[in-house]
Design a binder for these strands. Structure first.
Length: 450
RNA sequence: GCGGCCUUAGCUCAGGUGGUAGAGCGCCAGGUUGUGGUCUUGGAUGUCACGGGUUCGAGUCCCGUAGGUCGCCCCA
């Protein structure tokens, strides 16, 4: 690469070839499964008024304090590239006047998110998330269904064996405040044994000390109070109901009282699907309940629950499991001699109209075209020499086993159905159905002839 | 934002203690103007990430910058 060649901006990456196919597989599987659960897809703007995020994510969260891509536009407004999409979806619910009717609203989304961070494998400045939100449901059954849907998507992607669901409760507001006070009390008494980072957290966000990776901090955890000692009866009942529903949905999970989640808007349910296969980026899907967020956007109280998942991370799991989708295999139409080209184009288009993936090179002799066919992974070649065309015939060659046969032009699709050409089998079957239908119509006409 | 390691052809990588570059794969052309994969012959790969320094001489040593990677922070 020449030194004058432009590089992608730091933390961004191009999705090309296999990587793009994995990416698309993740999004399409999620979209498909979420639709089965009754979620409708929304697309909200990639940038929003900065207050959408500063108001919702918590003034002390890292995302707000140091990771936002914010800038002032030409009109003097402060706008921010979305670092996540839950806040945007809640804003959209309110902006579009959807808070009064038809609740709960079940929303699926997929798209790019932006955080100014130091890039690593599985962590980028522009990355992609899929997510679902149930807006306007206070029942723990909604939490369980949201989690079940996430689990189902991972099963559909065949990566569910590699992840573990960890759940926790953050309680309601009284539970959380009591717990926070107890934690501050405990860690203040042992301040001398806390790491430097955690001493800072003590003043800012004491809950975060719980998932510190510092070995010294870890030794303090066993004696630390847990949220479960401070749950109100209502919060405890909510959590118990969630676990019961998860069992009913047959979603395996592990309780982890240390899960706290980074964004301030969560209450009650908090959960993460984690894996040990992605190094430091172990969280593959994470979410929880956020009963106060819509209100913060200027709407009425609208209890809600959802999750977001990193497409890049799910894609890495697909790659590691050898589950990269293969590219569709085309049929290649090969005219021999210039005079054959017009008829070859007619046949090429007929194949495409029938639903097959078909290609024809723009130039080259037979040998070159065959080489190219092989290179692009074609499953079959339809060879059209002037000799064959004069007899209304074509050669259909299976490029996997090297066998070939001369067939009538109207039997080309049928012959391609014997190969791995994408769409050929379906096209041939559809053709048969049509013929069968025509035959039935023909029989029905017989009585009139009598 | 902090620390470790890394950066040589399109890709994966060799290049003891300094003497101005190599392999495999891939690519292009021929053997083969009606048959791809296999085989065979030939060909082009490059500011050795960038900038500076030491030296007669730097891919090699030193400093800085950028990017990547691993970890911390945090998170998808």
């Amino acid at each position: 690469m020449s030194s004058t060649a432009l590089q992608p901006a730091r933390g961004t990456h191009d999705l090309i070839g296999e990587e793009h196919r994995r990416h698309r597989r993740v999004v399409e599987a999620a979209r498909d499964i979420a639709a089965r659960y009754g979620f409708e897809e929304w697309a909200t703007p990639v940038f929003e008024d900065t207050r959408v995020f500063s108001r919702s994510l918590g003034e002390t969260s890292d995302v707000v304090t140091k990771e936002m891509y914010s800038f002032t536009d030409r009109g003097g407004e402060s706008v921010t590239l979305r670092p996540e999409n839950t806040a945007g979806v809640c804003r959209a619910l309110v902006s579009n006047g959807l808070t009064q009717s038809n609740l709960p609203r079940k929303v699926f989304y997929a798209g790019p998110m932006f955080r100014y961070e130091r890039p690593q494998k599985g962590r980028y400045r522009q990355f992609h998330q899929i997510g679902i939100e149930v807006l306007g449901a206070a029942e723990p059954l909604a939490d369980a269904e949201v989690i079940a849907c996430g689990w189902h998507i991972q099963q559909e992607l065949e990566i569910a064996e590699g992840t573990v669901l960890e759940v926790n409760t953050l309680g309601d507001r009284p539970s959380r405040e009591a717990y926070r006070a107890a934690l501050v009390d405990y860690f203040t008494r042992h301040q001398d044994r806390l790491s430097e980072d955690s001493r800072l957290r003590l003043g800012k966000n004491p809950l975060r000390i719980l998932d510190s990776k510092d070995p010294g901090d870890q030794t303090l955890m066993d004696g630390a109070p847990t949220i479960h000692d401070h749950l109100t009866a209502e919060a405890a009942a909510f959590y118990a109901a969630l676990r019961r529903h998860l069992d009913t949905f047959r979603v395996p999970f592990r309780e982890n009282p240390r899960i706290v989640r980074g964004l301030d808007y969560y209450n009650h349910t908090a959960f993460e699907f984690v894996t040990d296969r992605l190094g430091a980026q172990g969280t593959v899907m994470g979410g929880g309940r956020y009963d106060g967020l819509v209100e913060q956007m200027g709407g009425p109280p609208t209890p809600s629950v959802g999750w977001a998942a990193g497409v890049e991370r799910l894609s890495l799991l697909l790659e590691a499991a050898g589950l990269t989708p293969s590219a569709p295999r085309p049929a290649v139409v090969v005219p021999v001699g210039d005079a054959a080209e017009p008829q070859a184009i007619a046949i090429l288009q007929r194949l495409r109209e029938a639903g097959l993936v078909a290609e024809m090179a723009y130039r080259g002799n037979l040998r070159r075209r065959m080489e190219r066919a092989n290179r692009i992974g074609a499953a079959a070649a339809v060879i059209l020499g002037e000799d064959e065309l004069a007899r209304g015939m074509a050669i259909v060659r299976n490029l996997d086993d090297g066998t070939q046969a001369e067939v009538r032009l109207d039997a080309v699709i049928e012959a391609l159905a014997e190969t791995d050409v994408e769409g050929a089998l379906e096209a041939a079957m559809a053709d048969e159905l049509e013929e069968g239908f025509e035959a039935m119509l023909g029989e029905e006409e017989e009585p009139d002839d009598r």
